[in-house]
Design a binder for these strands. Structure first.
Length: 430
RNA sequence: GUGGGUAUAGCGUAGCUGGUUAACGCGUCAGUUUGUGGCACUGAAGACCAUCGGUUCGAAUCCGAUUAUCCACCCCA
């Protein structure tokens, strides 16, 4: 029988790697929580229309990357991102009726049918936050600051923050006109996709990698010159706030996010160390989305952070968050009677919160010691007929080799715990 | 969706001017006598050489297709 394989573009996270994910997730949760963000959990699939309306009918994500599944009469779509579903949940459960702003975070997997490559999977994991209710640039600064804090605490080095403002729909309409006017005379020289983009979404032209198009676009009008007074002052204030917080950034007028819901502030944290897919975190303001999804007109913003990309970046810089699975004590039984006693002792220790293991393979003493060493057991204890008769056994510290005698009675778990804690403290002081 | 690279034991690789039992390292398992791991040594298990088809007396080695994977475009996290 042929072995069934994982679908294209998916990953198994194995023991060893999963500890690293847990460490990352723990840091994300703690950081979000101290900023007042609380976790929200939403379904993996939603009505397809939520995404076509929320993310945007014309976006690539909606047009060609969605996993839409049909079961019986109904049809649903696996979420390609977290924002639409989160906003839907906020509205459906009336969270906007509570104290504003509403701050939520999530860790979830997203699904997009794209061609996999470095830093791009068909199922990927995202940490994201959304804040609803504030139109003020201080909210933008807070959200960016949260992402910045996470990246700093992770110790990621070469990640740069790029910000831009793409204005409100009104600014953008004027800007689109100006762009078309600029590029139209050069239309024939542009690459094929850009000729199409000229009509559909001229801002994407600025993003084109083709050297010819880049050259043509060099002197193209810049969105920042077309912002209305409101949008312009919003952006200026945001920059002031970022300076105030000591967060370095560069203004990149070429940032054009591919999801339709963005307004005003957009930003990306980009690294160059993991290949072409270097956007490790991206987000911005989406003041029109909540209304678009049938809620009350409410300003909001957020970001998504790609966890696989984050880990790739960390690894490329030699950082590894993973920690070995703990084993405080490995009990080495010799003989049937000892095996039964070992089983009891291990169970007792676990109830007291110590990580304890004993033999389940029927191995020789020597083989058991090797195993204990391999799994990184901090202490071992051999028990055989002698120990059972004496009611006492020798505890061995695997790192120092130090040996201590312990009674195998009711005081055992407590006595072991004391020794184990003392050892932990001693290691910490080294 | 479009290009290009790669596909040999759990992992990393050698073998690729076609020729008997496909090699090595790591890992796994057992052992190196009498009750204590790390090092070293001995041995074992583990591969229809991605799949299908073709060329040939003969293919892991050459050719084609398929699939998977990687990188890039596109797009985004």
């Amino acid at each position: 029988m042929a072995l069934l394989k994982r679908p294209n573009g998916t990953e198994d996270i194995l023991p060893g790697a999963s500890e690293e994910w847990q460490a990352l997730e723990g840091l994300l949760r703690r950081t979000a929580q101290v900023s007042g963000f609380r976790e929200i959990r939403i379904p993996t699939f939603e009505q397809t229309e939520l995404f076509s309306r929320g993310v945007g009918e014309t976006t690539d994500v909606v047009q060609k990357e969605m996993y839409t599944v049909t079961a019986k009469e109904s049809s649903f779509t696996l979420r390609p991102e977290g924002t639409a579903g989160t906003i839907r949940a906020i509205l459906q459960n009336g969270l906007l009726n509570e104290a504003l702003p509403q701050r939520v975070y999530y860790i979830l997997s997203c699904f997009r049918h794209e061609r996999p490559q470095a830093g791009r999977l068909r199922e990927f994991h995202q940490f994201g936050v959304e804040m609803a209710g504030s139109p003020d640039p201080s909210a933008d600064a807070e959200v960016i600051s949260l992402a910045h804090q996470i990246i700093t605490e992770l110790g990621v080095k070469d990640v740069a923050l790029h910000i831009n403002s793409i204005g409100c729909p009104e600014c953008r309409r004027k800007y689109h006109e100006a762009l078309r006017a600029y590029f139209l005379p050069h239309k024939a020289e542009l690459c094929e996709t850009c000729q199409e983009r000229l009509d559909k979404n001229p801002m994407r032209l600025l993003d084109c990698k083709s050297p010819i198009d880049k050259e043509i676009g060099k002197d193209a009008p810049v969105i920042l010159d077309y912002l209305c007074e409101e949008c312009s002052s919003h952006f200026e204030k945001l920059k002031t706030y970022l300076d105030l917080l000591g967060i370095a950034y560069s203004v990149d007028p070429k940032i054009v996010r591919g999801l339709d819901y963005y307004t005003k502030t957009v930003f990306e944290f980009v690294t160059t160390s993991i290949g072409a897919q270097g956007t490790v975190c991206g987000g911005g303001r989406y003041d029109g989305l909540i209304e678009q999804l049938g809620g009350p007109a409410t300003p909001a913003l957020g970001f998504g952070m790609g966890l696989e990309r984050m880990l790739l970046t960390l690894h490329s810089q030699g950082t590894d968050l993973s920690q070995p699975a703990p084993c405080d004590l490995y009990i080495v039984p010799m003989g049937g009677a000892a095996a039964e006693r070992a089983m009891q002792l291990a169970a007792t220790l676990r109830r007291e919160g110590s990580a304890a293991q004993t033999d389940v393979m029927g191995r020789s003493l020597r083989a058991q010691m090797k195993y204990a060493d391999k799994i990184g057991a901090r202490f071992t204890m051999v028990i055989g007929d002698n120990e059972l008769a004496a009611g006492e056994a020798v505890l061995k510290n695997m790192k120092s080799g130090e040996k201590i005698s312990l009674r195998l009675d009711d005081s055992f778990a407590q006595a072991f715990s004391d020794i184990e804690i003392a050892d932990r403290l001693a290691l910490g002081n080294e």
